[in-house]
């Protein structure tokens, strides 16, 4: 990620290589050859669509009608409208809540607790728990969505049967709360696995010394374990935040209902674009979303860089 000092684009590659005297001659051009396929893929599948989205966002493009055949460029109208639109801001707010609740807190904490607890568990217990948690992760989204609709259904739902609260409509009364619980359940496996690997890299000798020095369980965790896996925590948080931010599974369960109360940003964009048929406006929101994604990623990368070597 980090650009090497002095490797600015203005410097002649050969000069840079000679100065260090490490690279064989022609290494830079060879490297370029290796990178070109990747760059091409990124251009075709990421940069061009992003530019296309930017362009569509400047038009009144629609799914049908005259504006489908001949979209007009209307300037930045869509972008200013989106930023002033309460529906958009509400959707963004719900998305941030969704990310904070289900990814940053939910999956992170639950994943860590599971990884921590399973360290000292018997192999059979460990295998069983890991399988169950992984299952939630690898099942197809459509299947999972139906399971959760059935699980939280007001009439005859499993949860209501267990709690004897028949008629309580979880998806309706607590749409965001239910989605957060759902997504925590759905995505914890990744955090658990990542933390399991990270915890095994903490040298037992350090923990042993801490114990000898009289540190309790909590102190060991705070002063030895967490500093040791700080990078893993940040990387994990970055990945699951971005995934959750872009997650479309909520649509499969609630379609944004009731009255948009569960319309996170991807769902809102979809509802605007296809049933709403406003492809131009939806493209504008998509681009705003892309920018937010980039900012999120950038923020994490900066924090990650600042960690002590």
């Amino acid at each position: 990620m980090r650009a090497e000092a002095g490797d600015g684009p203005g410097l002649a590659p050969a000069a840079a290589g000679r100065r260090r005297g490490e690279r064989p001659p022609g290494g830079r051009s060879q490297g370029l050859v290796f990178v070109i396929p990747a760059l091409l893929l990124i251009t075709v599948f990421l940069i061009l669509p992003a530019l296309w989205t930017l362009y569509l966002g400047l038009t009144d493009y629609r799914l049908t009608g005259l504006q489908a055949a001949h979209p007009k460029v209307i300037g930045t109208g869509n972008y200013t409208q989106a930023l002033g639109d309460k529906e958009f801001r509400d959707a963004l707010g719900r998305t941030l809540l969704f990310v904070l609740g289900s990814a940053v807190i939910g999956q992170n904490v639950l994943g860590f607790v599971l990884a921590w607890a399973l360290r000292s568990a018997r192999a059979s217990v460990r295998a069983l728990v890991e399988t169950l948690v992984l299952l939630a992760w690898i099942l197809p989204g459509v299947v999972v969505a139906w399971l959760w609709i059935a699980f939280l259904k007001d009439q005859g739902g499993a949860l209501n049967t267990i709690l004897h609260t028949s008629g309580h409509d979880w998806w309706f009364d607590h749409p965001m709360g239910s989605l957060i619980v759902f997504n925590t359940w759905r995505g914890t496996a990744f955090s658990m696995m990542l933390f399991s690997a990270a915890l095994s890299s903490v040298p037992p000798s350090q923990l042993e010394s801490a114990r000898l020095a009289g540190a309790g369980g909590w102190q060991q965790l705070r002063d030895v374990v967490i500093p040791g896996i700080r990078g893993h925590i940040l990387t994990n948080t970055l990945l699951i935040s971005l995934w959750t931010f872009n997650d479309f599974t909520p649509y499969l369960i609630t379609k944004g209902e009731p009255h948009s109360a569960s319309a996170v940003l991807p769902v809102y964009i979809y509802l605007t674009a296809l049933p709403g048929e406003r492809l131009g406006y939806a493209s504008a929101i998509s681009l705003i979303m892309l920018v937010i994604n980039l900012l999120l990623a950038l923020a994490y990368v900066r924090i990650l860089r600042r960690r002590p070597a």
Partner: peptide, 8 residues
């Protein structure tokens, strides 16, 4: 990327 394009 954009949901619309992905959906399409």
């Amino acid at each position: 990327m954009t949901i619309t394009r992905v959906a399409a």
